[in-house]
Design a protein around this nucleic acid. Structure first.
Lengths: 210, 210
DNA sequence: TAGATTGTTAATCGATTAACAATC
DNA sequence: TAGATTGTTAATCGATTAACAATC
């Protein structure tokens, strides 16, 4: 099985499968058919079977899927069986809100360092982690095994910081800055352009002006 | 021109066109061809022409597109020529961060009311707006013309609150709660499931485990 | 064994890209 | 007019749905 052959559309659906299966598991449901899951998720049975089967035969004819097993398999696909070490860059309102969000840690995403250019907040603690000056980022990354950087800084600084992160060996960037980063293709960037998302909502309210 | 015929994929690209055109306009660029824009945006000229032409002939053969004009047209499509009145529900870390984000207001998205169930923060001001108890939401919506609600509350409360919002006449919900809302089909819901986004990033880091 | 449900192939649908005639 | 570039049709590619044989 070659991951290159997994369509984007399928990958983007995995976290939602994971969420529904987690809820079913917590409700004590042991098995589920593609039909039942489709009804619950408002998708189609055919799509579910097609999607899951790309990763191997998780189901069983005549029975369906074992909820706990499927939940764990998808968790593994999503890399949730391993711990991820993160740094957060930009401890403004949004950065601090994300750093305070405890559920990331529950899924293995642990914020190990927080950096900001504003000296007024250096030393301030956010859940066990002190805010450090940007200058400390390099040595911090050399001494800690950091996978992912969360970028919550203004767009005017984002490109430069992203460049440095790549230089220091980051593997993934979760980008909240309203700018497109250009990084080597082995680096994963996931954009979170909130204002664009709001504009899309606005378009739909608007019916596109027609 | 029937908005029903505009593909989702096209709609989701509009805000990004808008962003690039705004930057070009600010840089004093007067005209641009689909080819130049494609190079800038790392998309394809064919797609740009195809996308834009769905909304009418914004371009001119032999010349290209007028940047300022196209910027304004797309802004109109996105409903940015009108003001939107919003309420924010849930003034936790993320809610407060969004309420403090000034750029939404620049685009015409104005937060008129903030509601939270925690009495300890009632009366607290976030940029001109006081946090009010949830009970005041109904009368507030009756007395103000509110388009959009931002939902930054725990998932355990989101479904119930969404139901009330619909009852009180909301038109769109920007949902940050990690749950799928079911609302009548004329209500627009845009989900912002941040943790799912992070999981997708993690999948890609992981190469899906293969 | 019979019934249920997956895995998987084929058919359809939608989105992207290529090509070129229309026209500024 | 000649050159440039759009608007638009046709071709390709990718994703979803339908159908059914395989099999538990």
């Amino acid at each position: 099985m070659d991951e290159k052959s997994i369509p984007r559309a399928v990958i983007s659906r995995l976290p939602r499968y994971f969420r529904y299966l987690g809820e079913l598991k917590d409700d004590g449901v042991e098995r589920i058919s593609s039909n039942e899951l489709a009804a619950l998720m408002k998708s189609s049975a055919s799509q579910i079977r097609q999607d899951l089967n790309r990763f191997g035969g998780f189901g069983q004819q005549g029975y369906g899927y074992n909820v706990k097993n499927l939940y764990e398999e998808i968790g593994r696909l999503l890399g949730l069986d391993k711990k991820h070490h993160l740094i957060l860059i930009g401890a403004g309102n949004l950065g601090q809100a994300l750093a305070n969000y405890v559920n990331f840690e529950k899924r293995g995403f642990i914020i190990k360092g927080i950096f900001d250019k504003n000296p007024a907040i250096h030393g301030k603690m956010i859940r066990d982690v002190a805010i450090s000056p940007m200058e400390d980022m390099k040595s911090f990354m050399e001494n800690n095994d950091i996978d992912i950087a969360i970028l919550t800084i203004p767009k005017s600084e984002a490109i430069e910081v992203a460049k440095k992160l790549v230089e220091y060996g980051i593997r993934g960037i979760w980008n909240f800055a309203h700018v497109d980063l250009s990084v080597p293709e082995n680096i994963v960037v996931k954009n979170e352009h909130l204002s664009e998302s709001l504009m899309e909502l606005s378009y739909k309210l608007n019916d596109g002006g027609f």
